[in-house]
């Protein structure tokens, strides 16, 4: 019981103190999970993290589930996951309620007009980063363009794009000999 509670609290801290998710969470996970609690070794954490990146869903949640499940089975997975999402639930709900009440004030509207411009720059920055790490060849360029056009112009659900791109990956694997 004590370890489950510790798990919830530790992942609460991780969720509540890291900004930005993704890679920002790794140093925090190292400190809390490896150094403080000794729930996993450095190598295990890197493995969980790598799997978290190539499975669907939020990377931090995937990693938390992995560590929780390895230590304490299903209950551990639930406690770790509940911990990592708890701070978001509280903080974001409060902010969303706050914004709804203040959205009619002109100064707030001007502030958000400015913020939206910053968001454009943030998203473009994220796309450039993903392009550099993910688009390695002509097939990559075609996949990027096809995904963009299917969503921005045709309005297709991203679900189809993800399925189609996954199938392309399977076909390419078969063509290269289909190693197990």
């Amino acid at each position: 019981m004590k370890e489950l509670w510790d798990m919830f609290l530790t992942f609460c801290r991780i969720g509540g103190l890291t900004f930005g998710g993704g890679y920002a969470m790794l140093p925090m996970l190292q400190k809390e999970v490896v150094e403080r609690q000794g729930w996993a070794t450095e190598e295990e954490l890197m493995d969980y993290y790598a799997i978290g990146q190539c499975t669907p869903g939020v990377i931090a949640v995937n990693t938390a589930t992995f560590i929780g499940y390895k230590r304490r089975g299903l209950a551990g997975a639930m406690c770790a996951t509940a911990g990592v999402i708890f701070p978001s639930l509280v903080i974001i709900t409060v902010i969303a309620a706050f914004i709804q009440n203040f959205a009619d004030i002109p100064a707030v509207q001007h502030a958000f007009a400015g913020i939206r411009v910053a968001v454009c720059a943030l998203v473009l920055g994220a796309v450039i980063k993903l392009w550099k790490s993910g688009v390695k060849n002509t097939v990559g360029v075609i996949l990027f363009a096809a995904a963009f056009l299917a969503t921005a112009i045709l309005g297709l659900s991203p679900v189809w794009t993800v399925i189609a791109a996954g199938l392309v990956g399977v076909v390419r694997w078969k063509k290269e000999g289909g190693k197990k």
Partner: peptide, 10 residues
């Protein structure tokens, strides 16, 4: 390897 560029496009 195929999903990454598609996700960037999305």
């Amino acid at each position: 390897a195929s999903l990454r560029p598609a996700v960037a496009g999305l």
